[in-house]
Design a protein around this nucleic acid. Sequence first.
DNA 1: AGTGAAATGCAGACTGT
DNA 2: ACAGTCTGCATTTCACT
Lengths: 146, 146
Amino acid sequence: MAGMDEIDHRILAALVADARATYAEIGADVGLSAPAVKRRVDKLQDSGVIRGFTAVVDPEVLGWNIEAMIDVYCQGRISPAELRAAWLPIPEVVQASTVAGSADAVLRVRARSVPHLEETLERIREAAAIERTESTVVLSRLIERG
Amino acid sequence: MAGMDEIDHRILAALVADARATYAEIGADVGLSAPAVKRRVDKLQDSGVIRGFTAVVDPEVLGWNIEAMIDVYCQGRISPAELRAAWLPIPEVVQASTVAGSADAVLRVRARSVPHLEETLERIREAAAIERTESTVVLSRLIERG
DNA sequence: AGTGAAATGCAGACTGT
DNA sequence: ACAGTCTGCATTTCACT
């Protein structure tokens, strides 16, 4: 985005802290009226700085206890857009990135059980032209932020 | 949480999709009145299933353009708690997990530039008794959720 | 869990700087 | 261009059924 001043950054921080905060509350924090805050938030969304608003849910509570990282090796060249389209419908895929390393992409997957993880792996492999995958199971989550 | 029925799950899904959706909108989706939805959301928050609501911000725009995943190989046995304590003060570390694989831990790091990434790597290595690290730079973020 | 009413917050148009 | 005020309308929130 072109001009992002101090106030925009403070509005962003407020929304990251609580996405359901009212415009008036944010305005009180940053010293602006509610309509002024809304105008800025709208611009921030239109320009792509704010991608959206989500609820952060405790995965443990829902029984999605097991997590794994999957290195994916593709056959030939597949565009990032194709990979994204292939994996987006799989809800177990929490994170996907293309990387500059020996692997082509790295996924982060959450599942309820080992059989569930295995089934998810199968669906990931079927979704695109994939040569092989290498999975490493997460033992404990030390840090989670950003 | 004790009793989480189908409707609770659908409310969760709606809030994950858009944390600023109104209770009336969610109620229309799940077949409940707005006050009923609010009561369920409040309970979901009190019981810890919903940890909060945040805005998802494009990191590129804020200048934290480069991201890397770091496989860490430790010397001897280090407890997860020690690793956490060592890396928590480093703000560039966005995610850290111990894993069951050839590496002992995997970090996800965000930096403003390659020199900044290098400096962060140095600090990560100094923070604990580490044998060696293997970094892979992220080319593009395909999916980011959960 | 639904209903209805009061309080609150939102979104648009308008004005001033 | 950007902030403030006003206003009609939607939403939240409470008491009650």
